[in-house]
Amino acid sequence: MQKQMKPLLLLAVMLCSVFAKGQTLDDGLMMPKKYFCTGFLYTYSQWDKYWEGTLKRDNQNIGTFSSHNIMYVGNYGITDKLNVIAMAPYISNQSNKGTLTGLQGVQDLTIGGKYRLVRKQIGENRLSVFGVATVSTPLSNYTIDLLPMSIGLGSTNLSARGIINFRLKQGWYVNFSPAYTYRGNVALDRNHYFTDGVAYYTNQVRMFDQFSYNVNIGLIKQGLQTELNFYQQNTLGGGDIRRQDMPFVSNRMNASTIGLLVMYYLPAPKYLAFRFSTSYVIDGRNVGQSFSVMGGLLYTIHFTKPTSTVNEN
């Protein structure tokens, strides 16, 4: 089985010219028991405008900021009602103008449990409710003090999410998923900073929690999933980037993002799925106006069947 996996993973990495945004913790889909879905997702995103506080601007010393993200994803069905999901990205950030160095490295590990609380047939339609709990924490000691180049914010997060999914018989679905993220404080490599009007004499930085939600509307039919979505992220505190200042790790980072997702389960081999998505930040605060494209291959293994089943593919 291991031997069979390798070429596919390689293919997934090589397909880096296709793109999107990995969202598997906030949709209405579950892996059946003893199914393991795994793969790599590649995301390219860029922006040349950002919000300095609420002021939208460009910056000729950044030009176009770009980010490459290769993320490992694994999703295992412990039971039909409980999935465990793990994600870990490698990120490389750079800009095409100015003198500031780009940064790269392995970012945070996210591990989540997704549990189906309700599954109710309403006529020919189906309502499902899920609860998701995730924890994420840095896998490497990357610097958080050189935004926007830093590959992450360095905080260890706990997140609780609800998902309400309503699916029509014809395959149409609508999905609503609110989430609250507790963000642990972070430490800088310096003992002084100034943010939100206050001078601090410590290396500890208070990270405010986040509230986010997403709404997804789509159709799943004959192995093809197509979806339009909207993501809203609000940070529940934190200072703005001041005029002509650098961003800071605890800034109030808000974003409203619209996106499109296409997922296609290839007819042969039947355990292979192709995922594509794209998104665009339509409004924000202390964030870049990112345009992202993501593509990836996901491969599903069924552990209860004999190895020969996989080999058939």
């Binding site: 610097t143 003090d145 050189l146 800088l188 490599d189 310096r190 003992n191 002084h192 900073y193 100034f194 001078a199 001041r242 002509q244 200042d245 650098m246």
Partner: peptide
């Protein structure tokens, strides 16, 4: 060490 002593824009 770079960031400990950077003391650039927006600092004291």
């Amino acid at each position: 060490i770079v960031h400990k002593w950077a003391d650039g824009g927006g600092t004291y």
